[in-house]
């Protein structure tokens, strides 16, 4: 067996593969134009261990469709650069619940991956939705110490608007996931 190729930082110039339109999964000339579902935005600010915003991160989004399927009919991929204030913002459809290990059900969630200068590999986390009754049964959240669970739960800030800030290091550090 040959082990996987080592990850390397995306560096400060990854914007050469930044296509700002990709942050809007529902863009009129994109693969999901006209897709039906609840339109939402998912936004947040990324900060580092010194409390400084991270203005040069690449955030990638991966999610199921509104029925909880990854069958590809909905192209659940997006990419967004953080701005000078460390902010990212995606426009998408709210995903449905996804089958989990055994007979469990994963509450609706969006996977976020962060790449940046100073990150030797991507950091993977999830955004769940506050107030969803299925959070209590989610098999992944159940593995997260209760004190830190909140770092994975986006909060509503308006109609269809959700916010999840990401802290790379230190107090309130986001829970990052690995398989």
């Amino acid at each position: 067996m040959t082990p996987a190729t080592a990850s390397q930082t995306a560096g400060p110039y990854w914007h050469m593969i930044d296509f700002p339109a990709w942050a809007d999964l529902l863009r009129a000339d994109g693969p999901n134009a006209g897709a039906a579902g609840e339109r939402i935005t998912l936004a947040g600010v990324i900060t580092d261990g010194a409390g400084a915003v991270v203005p040069d991160a690449m955030v990638e989004l991966w999610q199921a469709d509104p029925k909880g399927s990854y069958d590809g009919a909905f192209h659940g991929f997006g990419r967004c650069a953080t701005d000078a204030q460390g902010r990212f913002c995606f426009m998408t459809l709210k995903p449905g619940a996804v089958p989990g290990p055994g007979n469990s059900t994963q509450a609706p969630h969006i996977t976020l991956t962060i790449f940046a200068r100073g990150l030797m590999s991507g950091l993977v986390t999830r955004a769940y939705f506050a107030g969803d009754a299925r959070l209590a049964e989610d098999p992944i959240l159940a593995r997260v110490p209760e004190m830190r669970r909140g770092t994975l739960i986006a909060k509503p800030t308006g109609q269809g608007e959700w916010r999840l800030d990401i802290r790379l290091q230190g107090e309130g550090e986001t829970v990052f996931l690995t398989v």
């Binding site: 991966w62 199921a64 996804v98 290990p101 100073g118 829970v175 990052f176 398989v179």
Partner: peptide
Amino acid sequence: STAHRHPSQPPLRMPTTLTEASAPS
């Protein structure tokens, strides 16, 4: 540049679910 950007906690190990086993086309 890793000084203030690396998480201080190890990542949480989780099973491979449909979310990690699927990929965008």
